[in-house]
Write a protein that binds this DNA or RNA. Structure first.
Lengths: 346, 346
DNA sequence: CGGAATCGTGCACACGTATGCGCAAAACTT
DNA sequence: AAGTTTTGCGCATACGTGTGCACGATTCCG
């Protein structure tokens, strides 16, 4: 049936064979020449390179992969993007991956569960490695990757699973924030956590509480749902509803996005930040730097975190049997206008 | 050199050959059986299917692509993610693409220029099609895709280039907003636009201005940089600095993210929204629904837009010679508390 | 000047899947 | 029962690249 014969001649790719014919050599010579094999003479190499440029040759990444190489693809499993921190992380990962010649393939994005489709994609496309930022169901991913020999690095998650991880020193950062607030004269604290207990959130709660306990204090625990603006807002409303005598004079939320919700709720109910209540967060997302928020927070070292994560991943791609490694990077206290010195006594 | 001989036996893939040997048939029979070729008997088909399941066989997408099929990869070129609208669009694209068995490969993300690396990736990985939301330098992408026969669909961008596009009826939506505000009794308007003139922003400005002109009015044009919160904030500050007599009583910003900046600036300078000034936007991002903003806006039909975009793309992947198509979807006015009826006379 | 070492290149095959074609056996027709 | 169609499957090859091995040509050494 020569019905669709006209569809065929449309696009003919430039391959090593095209170049080989043009140069009068074998295709293997072209392959070696372009890959800098020292066995090929300089003259031949340059001649072939010239033809390649002339024809606009681009090696087919898929064929190269099939022939035993790496695909250059890294699978991305991303958490809830309603939290701008994950968006910033995505942006940084994409930029740094591109600089290293890697292409990010999105396997999953969002807070909901990971579908079977994702797992299939992970197996069908020969992903060299995986970067995971979502905790939910990450165990399945890690498990599957482990069985198939695909290295995994967790970003911003510490896990007991077989995988390396890079994370901020959540415990230390939260503790440092607690000590800072204590030093400012605050004595009545609220701690806003998230219901969906991620390792990150738990560590921050713990670090904050422990530092307060060292000063003989205990925070009022408020939780308002998941780690989102709305969750923080709900917690803030609950706090604003307290009788003034019981109301804390400093709030620490385990994520900036929640802290912003807390601030908005407090202000909406007539409380001033920082005059009446100091508010602090963790992450340092872009929104926190807005003059209307000016949130005091613990800045996560995003760029070094991603760099370290890719370092770990690439090392394990080249040497699959390297042992798992857990990296902790210290956060930095960023002081803004949402917190304020309290007079020593009431 | 038998040095790294131990590295080889690590992971042996399950391929059609594995199954063929196990079933005592040729590999071509396996391929046909799994792809539902009617020439294979039901008995053989089932036997092979059973073995495939037992061994956990997954076809290699790369090899399949090489053999003449589609890769199942669609390239994504994304705009500035500081605008949550683009993040929402990304999320929707990922979800809908997965449902159709497509994998999104991130080619570019962010406001800055598209690097050469991106163009290379586009050629090296056999992307079936491209989805573009960024206007900056999208001409290069479209050009390259056109030459290589890769269909392109622009989302939220209308372009004169060779590509199909799906977009909201920006002109009509902005005009409808203008008529609504007029109907509420507003007479002094401000229009907040962006410096970096995207087609989207320009159309919205135009639609708003034209509808006002039809009522014999002209808006005060304010621009405060690019389409970001900070840009809106700057415009809001300029507006708040005006003497009360000259100050508009309604502002329309060409994007929600700018409108939120405007609101924050106005409130920070003591103006009440909507009591003193009504504020309206365009996009309907999640933040606009927060009780603290409650922004009146034009909702973009995100889900249908992405659906239509993928429809167009898939149609052109299967039939490359289809003519370009431009789809316009009507937005819907979403009324919230940031706008308010004005008394008929002063 | 003959043998060995070195250099540059080609042949063949591998990776995993899809498919045109051919061939044997079974089913049907006359 | 012999010929014709249909059925079910295998052989060979293509896709584009990488690489082990071998082979002819050159160079070096004695």
């Amino acid at each position: 049936m020569p019905s669709s014969d006209l569809a065929a001649p449309a696009r003919d790719r430039v391959t090593v064979v095209t170049i080989a014919r043009r140069a009068g050599v074998a295709s293997s010579t072209v392959s070696r020449a372009l890959n800098g094999d020292p066995r090929i003479s300089a003259a031949t190499r340059e001649r072939i390179a010239a033809i390649a440029v002339e024809l606009g040759y681009m090696p087919d990444a898929l064929a190269r992969t099939l022939s035993g190489g790496r695909s250059g693809l890294i699978g991305l499993v991303l958490g809830p993007v309603e939290n701008p921190f994950y968006v910033a992380m995505l942006e940084e990962v994409v930029a740094q991956a591109a600089a290293r010649g890697l292409r990010p393939l999105i396997l999953h994005l969002g807070a909901q569960a990971i579908e079977a489709e994702t797992m299939r994609a992970l197996q069908q496309y020969r992903v060299d490695g995986c970067l995971v930022t979502s905790a939910r169901l990450s165990s399945d991913i890690a498990d599957l990757c482990g069985r198939r020999g695909v290295p995994v690095v967790m970003l911003n998650r510490v896990t007991r699973l077989r995988a390396s991880s890079v994370s901020c020193d959540n415990l230390g950062g939260a503790a440092e924030m607690a000590r800072f607030l204590l030093g400012q004269g605050h004595r009545r604290f609220a701690l806003v956590g998230a219901d969906t207990a991620s390792s990150t959130a738990l560590e921050r709660e713990q670090g904050f509480s422990q530092a307060l306990a060292a000063a003989g204090l205990q925070p009022l625990r408020l939780s308002g749902g998941n780690s989102s603006w709305l969750g923080g807002y709900a917690a803030g409303e609950r706090m604003a509803a307290l009788p003034p005598a019981e109301r804390p004079d400093a709030v620490f939320a385990v994520s900036d996005i929640m802290a912003l919700g807390v601030m908005d709720a407090l202000r909406r109910h007539g409380l001033r930040v920082p005059e009446d209540v100091s508010v602090a967060g963790f992450d340092d997302i872009a929104e926190s730097a807005r003059p209307t928020y000016a949130l005091t927070t613990v800045s996560q070292p995003l760029v070094p975190m991603v760099r370290r994560g890719l370092d770990l991943l690439l090392a394990r791609i080249q040497e699959p049997d390297l042992p798992d490694e857990v990296t902790l990077l210290r956060g930095r206290l960023t002081l803004r206008a949402s917190t304020r010195e309290r007079p020593p006594a009431a």
